[in-house]
Design a protein around this nucleic acid. Sequence first.
DNA 1: GCCATGTGCTTCGAATTCGAAGCACATGGC
DNA 2: GCCATGTGCTTCGAATTCGAAGCACATGGC
Lengths: 155, 155
Amino acid sequence: MDTPWLDELEMRAWVAFLDTSNLLHRRIDQQLREDGGLTQPQYELMTRLAEAPGTRLRMTELADLLVTSRSGLTYQVTQLEKAGLVRREACADDDRGVLAVLTDTGADVLRRTAPGHVRVVRDHLVDLLDRRQLADLADALDVARRRLRDAGPHR
Amino acid sequence: MDTPWLDELEMRAWVAFLDTSNLLHRRIDQQLREDGGLTQPQYELMTRLAEAPGTRLRMTELADLLVTSRSGLTYQVTQLEKAGLVRREACADDDRGVLAVLTDTGADVLRRTAPGHVRVVRDHLVDLLDRRQLADLADALDVARRRLRDAGPHR
DNA sequence: GCCATGTGCTTCGAATTCGAAGCACATGGC
DNA sequence: GCCATGTGCTTCGAATTCGAAGCACATGGC
């Protein structure tokens, strides 16, 4: 069970990943706050709903997509519901189930907020890389994502 | 000020980055919790101290390295101080300054915890990529990191 | 149909996070 | 030297996070 320590290159990649992820997260948070209204978790939640067929998803599916805890999702959906951006709907197939649905107001807010958000993502990551780098990044991280998802669908 | 939306490749890279970063973060958290004792922010904090000359850093420097808020850092250092893993020291040059110092106990705990942590990082990211991919990843994210750090040293 | 077990979501309390305000010392212009 | 302003860190209260426990319905064996 002896695990070799990270060598220089590995460490460089890992620390760069960690730092960039932290910094980007913080920057996005800041932009969204200034832009008013939404927090980062809320924005991501609504985005996933917007992309889903019928702009609605089961709570559990949504939690998995967002990589968040179920209780955390309950809280955020409740917040967004109070703000009128999302509503809950009973699930037809399963009486225990709950669907989170993006409201029209929610879709509007998302449309207004998106450009600023994309601007940040472009300025600090996407536009800094050429096509090949983007493709490589996507490929590399896809592998990791698949591994992570396979290893632990259990929460 | 019209910002082009992300095209398919850009979106793929961005979502892969977001997901991988969330998943990895969660996995690491889980491993550290099971391994007992430390949380992820605490582990990272102690690692940065361990790497620093004299295993000590000014609070502000540490906060910047960790990409966390100053108040958040105060809290975590206090926790670690209670646990005897870190201690505070007055700063010689500046009476306002505080140094966080890794204690011997802290270094021991870190040594015991590190292998399991590296194992997770290897299993879910580093070992999935070949040398070229690692180098490309490090390069790409270095560019982003530099941009993020330049754009906002202000908190 | 009954019941043991599983699943989906929420509630709960404790821990952690944040930014704004506060406090103490540092710095530089005069 | 005095004072206006800056900087380093902590305190504060409010918001958010989590996992464990709780509750309701679902499922499948018999």
